[in-house]
C-alpha cells in the first residue's frame, strides 16, 4: 500500500452565485522514498492539490469529494488536533509563499526552535543546535548569526531556504515542496535538490515536488503528474513522459522550453491560454488550444486511460504519441 494516496479529489471555491471547481477527480499516490513531480501551467491547481492533502483549503473553499489516505489513515476523519500532529511533523510542506511559514515579527531562530519544541521533547540548547545545523545544510551563510535575523533581513532565496530548513527539522516521512527553488540560483538549487535526493534515497522520505521547471523535475523525480485546469492530463515515468509525451499539452510544455528555441527569437508558446475556472469549455479543457481537437473533444471530457506506462486523458493519445 502506498504511503500517501489521493483518490478522486474534488475541491471547490464558491464565487458569488457560481462555484469554481479547482480540482476534478484527481488521483495519484506516493510510496515511501518515492519522488513525484507535479507540473502544469500557472493556475492548474498544483498548490490547491497540495493544500488539500494537509486540509489547508481556506473557507469558503472546501474539499467536496475524494479521499486522502496517509499511512493507512483517512485524513478526512482526523480531528484538527490529530491533523496538527501530522502537519509540519510527519508531512512537511514547503509553501510557495515563504511568508505562509515565516512570521515577520519573530526571528528565524525563535521560529525554528518553537517548531521543534512543538513536536519534540527537547531542550532549548539542543533545539538551537539542530536549527543551526539545518540552516547550514541549506547553505545559509553565517548560520549562527542568521539564526538571530528577522525574515525581512534575508534575501528572497535565503527566506526560501529557511522555509526548507524548517520543513526538514522534524524528519518528516513526506515532504510536499511547492516551487521550493524558484528564488534560487542554479548552484544553490543543486545543493538543495541534492539534499532532498539524499533524504529520499537514504532515509526513505517521500517527495512531492511541485514545480514549473521541467529540467528540475526531470533530474529529481521518478514519475510526473501533469495537471491542466484542475484535472490530470498525463502521468508517467519521468523519462518517457519528457522524451515521449502522449498528451498534446505535455508536448507543448516541452516545446516551450527556452533550451528548445533559438536564442533571441520569440519562444514557442502554446496558442491561447488556459481557461480560467469560470469559463472552462465543454469537453476536454485543452481543446481550444489543441491541434488534434475534433468534435468529440469539444463534447466529451476525456477520462485518464492507461497507455503503456502512462495515464493519459486525451481522446487522441495514440495519434499524438505517433506524431
Amino acid at each position: 500500500m502506498a504511503l500517501l494516496e489521493i483518490k478522486n479529489l474534488e475541491v471547490q471555491f464558491p464565487l458569488g452565485r457560481k462555484t469554481l471547481q479547482a480540482i476534478h477527480g484527481l488521483s495519484f499516490d506516493l510510496d515511501k522514498g518515492e519522488r513525484l513531480g507535479i507540473v502544469g501551467e500557472s493556475g492548474a491547481g498544483k498548490s490547491v492539490a497540495a493544500f488539500s492533502i494537509l486540509k489547508l483549503i481556506a473557507r469558503p473553499g472546501r474539499i467536496s469529494g475524494g479521499e486522502v489516505i496517509f499511512d493507512g489513515q483517512d485524513l478526512a476523519l482526523l480531528s484538527q488536533e490529530e491533523m496538527r500532529h501530522i502537519r509540519g511533523n510527519r508531512i512537511s510542506m514547503i509553501f510557495q509563499d515563504p511568508m505562509m511559514t515565516l512570521n515577520p515579527v519573530l526571528t528565524v531562530g525563535t521560529q525554528m526552535t518553537e517548531c521543534l519544541k512543538a513536536h519534540r521533547d527537547i531542550s532549548d540548547s539542543d533545539a538551537k543546535r539542530i536549527a543551526i545545523d539545518k540552516l547550514a545544510e541549506v547553505k545559509i551563510p553565517s548560520p549562527q548569526e542568521r539564526f538571530g535575523n528577522y525574515p525581512h533581513q534575508l534575501s528572497g532565496g535565503m527566506r526560501q531556504r529557511v522555509v526548507i530548513a524548517i520543513a526538514l527539522l522534524t524528519d518528516p516521512a513526506v515532504i510536499i515542496a511547492d516551487e521550493p527553488t524558484t528564488a534560487l540560483d542554479v548552484t544553490i538549487q543543486a545543493e538543495i535538490m541534492g539534499l532532498m535526493l539524499d533524504l529520499c534515497r537514504d532515509h526513505g522520505v517521500a517527495l512531492m515536488l511541485i514545480t514549473h521547471d521541467l529540467a528540475v523535475v526531470s533530474q529529481v523525480t521518478q514519475k510526473i503528474c501533469v495537471l491542466y485546469a484542475g484535472r490530470l492530463a498525463e502521468q508517467g515515468p519521468t523519462r518517457t513522459l519528457i522524451a515521449a509525451p502522449k498528451h498534446p499539452y505535455t508536448r507543448g510544455l516541452v516545446k516551450a522550453l527556452p533550451q528548445q528555441n533559438v536564442p533571441g527569437t520569440r519562444l514557442y508558446q502554446i496558442p491561447g491560454s488556459m481557461p480560467t475556472l469560470d469559463d472552462v469549455p465543454p469537453g476536454c479543457a485543452f481543446n481550444p488550444r489543441c491541434s488534434f481537437a475534433d468534435d468529440r473533444c469539444r463534447r466529451e471530457v476525456p477520462e485518464p486511460r492507461q497507455i503503456g506506462t502512462h495515464l493519459v486523458a486525451c481522446h487522441h493519445a495514440e495519434t499524438v504519441a505517433a506524431a
Partner: peptide, 8 residues
C-alpha cells in the same frame, strides 16, 4: 514563479 508556457 511562472511555468514555461506562461514564461514564454
Amino acid at each position: 514563479a511562472l511555468d514555461v508556457s506562461i514564461q514564454a
